[in-house]
Amino acid sequence: MSQLINKEAPYPVVPEQSDPDAETERKTASSKPCSPGVDDNPLLIVEDVGKSFNGTPACRDISFMLWPGEVLAIVGESGSGKTTLLRCLSAGIRADNGRTSYCSPTFGEMDVFTSPEHVLRQLHRTEWGLVHQNPRDGLRLGVSAGANIGERLMSLGQRNYGAIRDEALTWMRKVEINGDRIDDLPLHFSGGMQQRLQIARNLVTKPRLMFMDEPTGGLDVSVQARLLDLLRSLCSELHLAVILVTHDLGVARLLADRLLVMQCGRVVESGLTDQVLDDPHHPYTQLLVASILEA
């Protein structure tokens, strides 16, 4: 690994040069999803975020911006710090340095890392969504599907059973789960259904920003394709900004507007998805693309 980094030591010049280009590309990219009536302020500004575990850096010097309605994929091999970055940004773990500011309609411009816990927990119930790789981590397996979807509504003070149930049915329909299964436990659902239920449970409060950690991991190809299709339509319908962590470039190509390629805790290349995948500059990205396109 260290050899790899040493070898690449002369290279960072290349992405460095392409970075200003990426900046301009990003602006053009963002203006498209932003156009329907949303202001041009970025939703999330990430500056120099770093996190290390026991002195071993897991991710460092990460900076990027995310605009409303934009889907950003973070790709990279296993152990490149993708999930650590996602957990830092969603305030699941505390980052060592850097800052992330989030533009919230209720709280205004706020620093995610220094915000009090109750504000963050409220964000997680309202404006944010978190989709775990394993749906069992994100669902309450002991209560019915309807209660899973309704939980966020109830925690926001919805006290009408009929209304909660109607909303749950609407969302089950949207994620293509049969309405008769509303009273079944998610424990008895298939993996793909559990994942869709987890997404519905997060979307019910119409969040603005979703963090997704390998949402299609562990699903077979046909289920994965349908889930991706669903995610894409939901993102555009709800004007949802997504930070998507995946190791699968196919998923990234299908869903993401922009791409960050991570290696050994650093972003080695970033830009519009198609540009990065069709014309990779960094040798690691070239390697990644070459290995994936074979399949």
């Binding site: 816990e117 109750h118 927990r121 119930r125 309450r140 002991g142 209560v143 019915s144 309807g146 209660a147 309704g150 939980e151 966020r152 109830m154 925690s155 926001l156 006290r159 059973y161 909660i164 149930r165 509303i182 009273d183």
Partner: peptide
């Protein structure tokens, strides 16, 4: 609904009582 003591204390502190209604919802649904 919340087996962890640390988490349930936080929920009390932040007045996060949505899960209590999840329990009642389950009753009605079943």
């Amino acid at each position: 609904l919340e087996p962890r003591e640390t988490e349930s204390r936080k929920m009390h502190a932040q007045e996060e009582y949505g899960v209590m209604h999840v329990k009642l919802y389950e009753d009605i649904a079943r």
